[in-house]
Design a protein around this nucleic acid. Structure first.
Length: 876
RNA sequence: GGGAGAUUAGCUCAGUUGGUUUAGAGCACCUGCCUUACAAGCAGGGGGUCAUAGGUUCGAAUCCUAUAUCUCCCA
């Protein structure tokens, strides 16, 4: 069968993925080898693959595949996150479409709908990852609500509660009036919005017609006002000290209090205090022992405190109350104003600060080791700059609100047996709760008297133990897996979850394993479209990764996404990059086709040019391999790819293969073919982490392979010798060849026409690449001469003069122009060197080697100028 | 408001403790080639006063100080 001219990915991809799976290469069991462990950032169980996942998982796969080839026992644990609020929102939505209201369902009924949904949509993303080539250990797939995982999360709650690190209390929390749940600070997104500043006047109590004016962005909350606050140093308002004011519409009397918290510059300097609906007001309220009036229901409508606005939505009220205040003469004026408003990460609802009874984790002690071990470099961030962000957050850490008024998730193991604030116990089972409750209350508590907390835990409270619980490290401490795989090695994730997840995993790691959870964190950037916009469903600018894979092949897409994505930088994605990736797959494919087309003639001697080409490529390969290894060590993945790309395209294909390529339909000698196949193998190894499919395919086409001789488990190339003299000499040869090609082009000499080259040596150079120059330049002969050659095109490389005799007249003017340009540059260059060298302080101050180098540059440039000038005069 | 980072070719980025650099790469662009591995290709080429202004230094893309613009984080 003829080898197709272009690489066809689909068939090879399915074939090899299946083969790898059958062979169990992705599966890992503890053994005597060094482990290399990565845990996947678990995608939402009902999510679908998007470009961010592609980037993230491609990087993980590259790291894992290389580690496997380095002989480590690579284990990449996949899994899914139950994503409590996101999934619950989806299920609620779907039920609504079916005409079912969540409030009409019991908890169990709702959960059975949710699990149904999970079974239907869950895991799609994992199937999609397989298309990408992800070499995850699928036998170890975990879900954060698997029974044993669930248990470990509950245990952590119980344990932290026992240690006094989890407490229940009424605090100001971020309330999502759409999802009807509290959120953590991290789930709130602050956005700048254009709003209005309302200036409203309050009558001063027991005065005839004295007023004060406050400025607020939220006039609807005046019904919850319990004080007016002014700065004690504000000279304008000394007359207000000790007075009271009357809240418009509500006609309640409230005190005027003094606190230097008030910014005299902002608004009017009079601040209305609504402790129930603003965090700062809440603190002031506590400080001054103010009454708290909550005017809102959980869904953002007004309650009875809202008087005639009861039942209406908070944003509708804002408009209505503006009108009423205006009509009644309270509204002084309005101004345009830009302020920041918090939105729910999940529902995009405007967050309502709300006083609420919730569960919290006290973070202070947990943060300590997590902060120290990043600061001291035990855990490294790539790029490093995220250390600063991390440090700043950790040093100002606040307690974590972990209870959510949802059903989908890990139910809080707290049990209530009375109406008192402390009439509860924390226990794993109902029976245990009964026993504990009886003990605590000093009476016998019946099962019918206790009820479990209705709330579930924040999703991140389950994912912070991910690197531990995927190996059952909490349920079965010290088991074989956890002892072997933990701590894991590298974590690859987005910077957007540095606090949600990364920081908390580090805390959990030290709390429960007394050990870091991973040594390196690689932060990817955010994928944007080519105009720099975030990818979103609304904009429709988010390509379907599976479609891309169909179009360009998985290898092509992997390259497309990695080729310009340094760690931590946003990546403007353009499918043209996948095209580049596809072209690269095809390039390798065609290199194979060429090598495959050669037939060996046993008694054929090895051409000299091939022998030197082989020597050169060996050095060149090792030189590049060294760089690639170093780049991996520094987590510079896209640089490692680029170096590999150029090694293959430029060094191997454009130079090496052209140097050893026999004439059309001519045979090749045994030695050269063997060396070439050896190089090809080394190259496939280097490529395999990036392009697993096409490399495995060619690996098998190149040679017959026995059982288990698959590239995925081949050894990463050993670093060999680098002969830098040889590499330098080749550079000169390369330069000569380029010059010959230029002359051919300028004079329209076809490549197949053989030409002569004469060399006038002004400096002794090793001539072992002459044979290569002859072959690549398609020379009839290469002669050395002591005289300059008339009627010839000429050029200079490394101060030697090269002549290509040409029968007819050459274009003197064009030639002169070229030489003049070159001369001008050389003179400028010389001037910059001589400026340095004539500076006494440079010569005495700079290190010797730097001075010597400048002197060498000067000598070389001088002789080059001499040659050019001579050439120029001969043209005149 | 506080903090962090960035600004190098049309785009995306390198440029290692200041000195092999009057600055490199990939893509894009331009020119010429369908030359028997590849037109998804080959060969060649153009393009940057390193954001701006000062300063330190024998020497600055690199260090310092301001300014401008942008991004992110926190409140």
């Amino acid at each position: 069968m003829e080898t197709p001219k272009t690489y066809e990915p689909q068939q090879a991809e399915d074939k090899w993925y299946q083969h790898w799976m059958e062979k169990g290469y992705f599966h890992s069991e503890p053994d005597e080898r060094e482990p290399y462990t990565v845990v996947i950032p678990p995608p939402n169980v009902t999510g679908v693959l998007h470009m961010g996942h592609m980037l993230n998982n491609t990087i993980q796969d590259v790291l894992v595949r290389r580690a496997r080839m380095l002989g480590k026992n690579a284990c990449w644990v996949p899994g899914m996150d139950h994503a409590s609020i996101a999934t619950e929102a989806k299920v609620v939505n779907k039920l609504r479409q079916q005409g079912i209201k969540k409030s009409d369902l019991s908890r169990d009924e709702f959960l059975s709908h949710a699990f149904e949904w999970k079974d239907e949509h869950g895991g799609i993303i994992l199937e999609q990852l397989k298309k990408l080539g992800a070499s995850c250990d699928w036998d170890r797939t975990r879900f954060t609500m698997d029974d044993d995982y669930y248990e470990s999360v509950v245990d952590v709650f119980i344990d932290l509660h026992k240690k006094g690190k989890i407490y229940r209390g009424e605090r100001m929390v971020n309330w999502d009036p759409v999802a009807l749940t509290a959120l953590s600070d991290e789930e709130v997104i602050h956005k700048e919005v254009n709003s209005k500043l309302f200036y409203i006047r309050y009558k001063i109590a027991e005065s005839d017609d004295s007023w004060l004016v406050i400025a607020t962005t939220r006039p609807e909350t005046i019904l919850g006002d319990t004080a007016i606050c002014i700065n004690p140093n504000d000279a304008r308002y000394l007359n207000l000290h000790g007075k009271k004011a009357i809240v418009p519409i509500a006609n309640r009397e409230i005190p005027i209090i003094l606190d230097d918290y008030v910014d005299m510059e902002f608004g009017t300097g009079c601040l209305k205090i609504t402790p129930a609906h603003d965090t700062n007001d809440y603190e002031l309220g506590n400080k001054h022992k103010l009454e708290t009036i909550d005017v809102f229901n959980d869904n953002g409508t007004m309650n009875a405190h809202g008087l005639h606005y009861e039942g209406k939505d908070r944003f509708d009220i804002r408009k209505e109350i503006e009108k009423e205040l205006d009509e009644k003469g309270y509204l002084v004026k309005t101004e345009d104003h830009i302020n920041k408003i918090g939105y729910s990460e999940r529902t995009d609802a405007v967050i309502e600060p709300k006083l609420s009874l919730q569960w919290f984790v006290d973070m202070k002690d947990l943060a300590k080791p997590a902060l120290d071990n990043v600061a001291n470099g035990k855990i490294k961030f790539h790029p490093e700059k995220f250390q600063n962000t991390y440090k700043h957050w950790m040093e100002n850490i606040k307690d974590w609100c972990i209870s959510r008024q949802l059903w989908w998730g890990h139910r809080i193991p707290a049990w209530y047996y009375g109406s008192g604030e402390n009439d509860y116990v924390v226990a794993k089972t109902e029976q245990e709760a009964i026993n504990l409750a009886s003990e605590k209350s000093g009476r016998t508590i019946e099962a019918s008297e206790i009820r479990q907390d209705e709330d579930v835990l924040d999703t991140w409270f389950s994912s912070w133990v991910w690197p531990i619980s995927v190996f059952n490290g909490l349920n079965e401490p010290g088991n074989k897996d956890i002892s072997y795989y933990y701590p894991t090695n590298d974590l690859v994730t987005g910077p957007d979850i540095i606090f949600f997840w990364v920081a908390r995993m580090i805390m959990a790691g030290y709390e429960y394993m007394d050990e870091l959870p991973f040594s390196n964190v690689y932060f990817t950037g955010i994928i944007r479209d080519k105009l720099g916009r975030k990818m979103s469903k609304q904009l429709g600018n988010s390509p379907d990764p599976i479609e891309l894979i169909k179009k360009y092949g998985a290898d092509g897409v992997r390259i497309g996404i990695l080729i310009s994505s340094p760690a931590g930088n946003d990546l403007p994605f353009d499918s043209a990059q996948c095209e580049q990736g596809r072209n690269f797959s095809n390039k390798i494919w065609n290199a194979y086709r060429l090598v495959d087309s050669w037939s060996v003639q046993e008694d054929l001697p090895q051409p000299e040019s091939s022998a030197i080409a082989i020597k050169w490529f060996e050095s060149r390969f090792n030189q590049q391999l060294k760089e690639i290894n170093e780049m991996y060590d520094k987590f510079r993945i896209s640089d490692a790819l680029m170096t590999s790309y150029k090694l293959v395209w430029d060094d191997f294909c454009s130079w090496y293969l052209e140097m050893i390529k026999p004439g059309y339909q001519h045979p090749i000698d045994q030695k050269t073919l063997e060396a070439t196949k050896g190089f090809f193998e080394s190259i496939l190894k280097v490529l395999h982490p990036f392009t697993p499919f096409v490399s495995e395919e060619i690996w098998h086409l190149l040679k017959d392979r026995g059982e288990g001789e698959d590239l995925i488990v081949a050894d990463w190339p050993e670093l060999g010798n680098i002969d830098s003299n040889l590499l330098d000499e080749f550079k000169i040869a390369e330069d000569v060849i380029t010059n010959i090609r230029n002359i051919r082009k300028d004079n329209n000499i076809a490549n197949k026409v053989k030409i002569d080259l004469a060399v006038k040596k002004n400096k002794d150079l090793n001539s072992r690449f002459d044979v290569v120059i002859i072959k690549m330049g398609n020379l009839a002969q290469l002669d050395y001469t002591s005289e300059k050659v008339e009627k010839a095109n000429s050029f200079i490389v490394a101060t030697n003069e090269y002549f290509i005799p040409f029968g007819e007249e050459i274009d003197v003017d064009a030639e002169r122009e070229k030489v003049e340009k070159e001369l001008e540059y050389a003179k400028g260059f010389l001037a910059s060197i001589q400026k340095k060298l004539s500076n006494e302080r440079f010569v005495s101050g700079a290190p010797d080697n730097v001075v010597a180098l400048e002197k060498k540059k000067e000598t070389d440039t001088l002789s080059k100028i001499a040659v050019l000038e001579e050439k120029l005069s001969s043209l005149n």
